[in-house]
Measured scan of single mutants.
Amino acid sequence: RERTTFTRAQLDVLEALFAKTRYPDIFMREEVALKINLPESRVQVWFKNRRAKCRQ
C-alpha cells in the first residue's frame, strides 16, 4: 500500500473533527470517511497518529 497523502481539504475536515472529539466512534469515522473520500481505516489511523502527536 502506498503512503496516503491527505489533501488540505481532507486535513481541514479531520482537524475540525479532532477539535470536537479526539475519539470519534465508528459511525462518526464512517461519515467523515465518506465525506472526504477516504477509507474508514485511514481515518482511524489518522486519529491514532494525531493523538500520538498531541502527547509529544
Rank of each mutant, 00 (worst) to 15 (best):
R1M: 13
R1N: 06
R3C: 06
T4Q: 12
T5L: 07
F6C: 07
F6N: 03
T7M: 04
R8S: 12
R8D: 07
A9S: 13
A9F: 12
A9T: 15
Q10D: 04
Q10M: 00
Q10C: 03
Q10K: 03
Q10H: 04
L11K: 09
L11Y: 05
L11G: 07
D12P: 04
V13N: 05
V13D: 06
L14V: 01
L14W: 00
L14C: 04
L14Q: 02
E15L: 00
E15A: 00
E15Q: 07
A16K: 04
L17D: 00
L17Y: 13
L17E: 05
F18R: 01
F18T: 00
A19Y: 03
K20A: 06
K20T: 12
K20F: 02
T21F: 03
T21M: 03
R22T: 06
R22G: 05
Y23S: 05
Y23L: 03
P24S: 02
D25N: 07
D25A: 02
I26A: 10
I26F: 15
I26T: 15
F27R: 15
M28F: 03
M28W: 01
M28V: 07
R29G: 00
R29Q: 11
R29W: 00
R29D: 01
R29P: 00
E30V: 06
E31L: 06
V32E: 01
A33H: 02
A33P: 00
L34I: 12
K35T: 09
K35P: 00
I36A: 13
I36W: 04
N37L: 05
N37P: 00
N37M: 07
L38S: 09
P39R: 03
P39L: 04
E40H: 06
E40M: 10
S41K: 09
S41G: 09
R42L: 12
R42Y: 13
R42N: 11
R42D: 15
R42G: 09
R42I: 10
V43Q: 01
Q44M: 09
Q44S: 12
V45D: 11
W46R: 02
W46L: 02
F47G: 00
K48G: 06
K48I: 11
N49Y: 04
N49Q: 14
R50A: 14
R51K: 00
R51N: 13
R51V: 06
K53I: 08
K53L: 10
K53W: 08
K53Y: 05
K53N: 11
C54L: 14
C54D: 15
C54V: 12
R55E: 12
R55V: 13
Q56E: 14
Q56R: 08
Q56L: 05
